[in-house]
Computed example of a mutant assay.
Amino acid sequence: MTGERFKPVLYLKENCPFCLKVRIFLMESGFASEIESRDFVPGTKQEEEIRAVLQPHLEKVSFPSAELEPGRYVTESDDIVAFFAAKAGRDPKELTVYRNYVDGVFAMSMKLWKENMELKKAASA
């Protein structure tokens, strides 16, 4: 063993609202320096490489993804935030920027996404 401390690895896709939610939490909580971030642009070789790394560890590769502890991979943004909130000793509900994003822009984009899916489903019926 080298004695090096494990640093969680976070895989973030550019322009992903779930990835941004995690990033905002980490930055506002002061925990961002405690993780290794691997960011990528969709459709690039870098994305292919990241998916190849994650594939053996996840039933379905999606983003954000994180290796929180050696061999422990997760993909749900809320699970990732909860893990880091516990480590940082920070309550996400008390972080102003995070709450504004989750309750504002993020909530509205999820509402619009759901409406769009319903319209697509109705149009194809």
Rank of each mutant, 00 (worst) to 15 (best):
A85E: 09
E118Q: 14
P92T: 11
E48D: 14
R99P: 02
L10S: 06
F106W: 02
I24C: 01
D103N: 14
L95M: 09
R5G: 00
S33W: 02
E76D: 15
E67V: 09
P92K: 10
F106L: 12
S65N: 03
T96V: 11
M108Q: 14
L58I: 10
E47K: 02
L58G: 04
E69D: 15
P64Q: 05
C19D: 04
V9K: 13
K111V: 08
A85I: 06
G3Y: 01
L26F: 01
K114M: 14
Y101Q: 08
V81K: 08
E76L: 06
V41P: 00
C19P: 04
M27S: 08
K87G: 01
K7I: 14
P56T: 10
L10F: 06
S65F: 06
F106C: 05
I80C: 07
R23M: 10
A107R: 15
A88T: 02
L12Q: 05
N100K: 13
E4N: 13
F31Y: 15
G89N: 04
E47Q: 11
M117A: 11
A123L: 15
D39E: 11
I50V: 10
P8H: 02
S29L: 09
E34D: 07
I35E: 01
A82H: 12
E69S: 13
E49F: 00
W113Y: 14
V61C: 03
L26A: 05
L10V: 14
A88H: 05
E94A: 15
S37Y: 07
L20N: 11
S65T: 02
E94Y: 09
R99C: 12
H57T: 03
K45Q: 11
F25V: 02
M110V: 04
S109T: 15
A66M: 11
L20P: 00
E76I: 05
Q46R: 14
V22E: 03
G30H: 04
P70G: 11
F84I: 07
P17L: 03
K45T: 11
T75R: 06
F18G: 01
A32G: 00
F18R: 01
E115Y: 06
I35N: 03
E69L: 14
E94S: 15
L58F: 06
L20W: 13
M110A: 10
P70R: 15
N116E: 14
C16A: 06
N15P: 02
F84R: 00
K13N: 01
E67D: 07
F31P: 03
L26V: 08
A85K: 07
K87C: 09
I80H: 08
T2C: 08
L54I: 12
C19I: 07
S65R: 01
P17V: 05
H57V: 06
D78Q: 13
V97G: 03
V53Q: 05
E67S: 09
N100M: 11
G71C: 11
D103V: 00
I50Y: 08
E28C: 06
K87Y: 08
N116Q: 13
L12S: 12
V74H: 04
P92Y: 09
A52T: 08
I50S: 05
L54G: 06
E48K: 07
L20V: 12
G71H: 12
V22G: 03
S109Y: 07
